[in-house]
Write a protein that binds this DNA or RNA. Sequence first.
DNA 1: AGCACA
Length: 437
Amino acid sequence: MASLSSQPQFRYTQPPSKVLHLRNLPWECTEEELIELGKPFGKVVNTKCNVGANRNQAFIEFADLNQAIAMISYYASSSEPAQVRGKTVYLQYSNRQEIVNNKTTADIAGNVLLVTIEGQDARLVSIDVLHLVFSAFGFVHKITTFEKTAGFQALVQFSDAETATSAKNALDGRIIPRYLLSENISPCTLRITYSAHTDLSVKFQSHRSRDYTNPYLPVAPSAIDGSNQFNLGLDGKKLEPESNVLLASIENMQYAVTLDVLHMVFSAFGPVQKIAMFDKNGALQALIQYPDVQTAIVAKEALEGHCIYDGGFCKLHLSYSRHTDLSIKVNNDRSRDYTIPNPAMVNPQPSVLGQQPVQTMGHQYNGTQYAPGVQQQPTMPPQPSAGWGSSAVPPMPQPMMNNHNPYIPPASMPQMTPGMMQMPGQGGIPPFRPTYM
DNA sequence: AGCACA
């Protein structure tokens, strides 16, 4: 007869085992949470979580069989189900007698992440896009990309395991934000584990590898001649040589764009050293100087085509300037050197020097997006919104895990990092209104 | 909501 016992995976009773199988766990359940759950019943000697296709299953191994029996028995008769983060979890004896090989290299936290980019067009994802995505969590030292049987992969090197972990926790299983990819590219999912590497060897800057700690590393010949892929963007457009100075031109300038506004907007990505504004053919342009090329790249990629004000006003167009160091003769309403101490200056910047882009998002312009018609002060332009606003942090009474990551992984899906999901208006309060006009 | 070395 086709009894239940012919389908062992659906049996209601498993023979007892020191190992318990848990299911219906929250997506990012931690080993600590599993230990907490099992602790009242005995000594948890091993755990394995995030297993199974949906990463919502786990195992707990007790030191003693009786402890496992105690836990199963307790919840079998309890009116309160076992819970993790308020979510009911279902448990039963595992059909294995022990958890095997719990810790592989992929589980041991390190400063280098192994990133697999999944998707039809995975290999069209440029190293610059990856750099942008991972820079939200801290300074990215190096990136290498390569093709393996697993698909298109990258190694991303951070300063330390903590930073790498925050990036991994936030990005694993998520897609690369759509607005970072050109429209014809299908969604790309990131799968992230730890790599055993601690320091990547990058010999050349190329379309396959970058060392951001050494921008003067020679550019690979293969990247210069012939294919010229080094200078090709995702959409195949040719890019100007990168520079630490950005040239911004402002289109549809319904509102006065002041030096302070520009400073605020561009400071979201790192310390702004100097700004010079001028008119060119009746349109406003500005040169914005960062201490390094990397910060300028991040700012350019994030801000290009976006509007300072809601409603498509003051749309930014950015290119790399030929300048590397602006000569500011005088500090006035059109030009300023922020590297010169000035007690009268508002909005001082923490001197993180591009180390932690997210850390510089501390501007509290995260409140209302002022529509052009509803200005509070008739004479004032609407409040511009700082690039990657701190408003992205979900309003959950949750302690910061560490001091340098404003990102708190949301209990439930959609957002990625501060700003990242914010910018294209995918919920929350977008710091920058993407209008793509 | 259903058993893991990739």
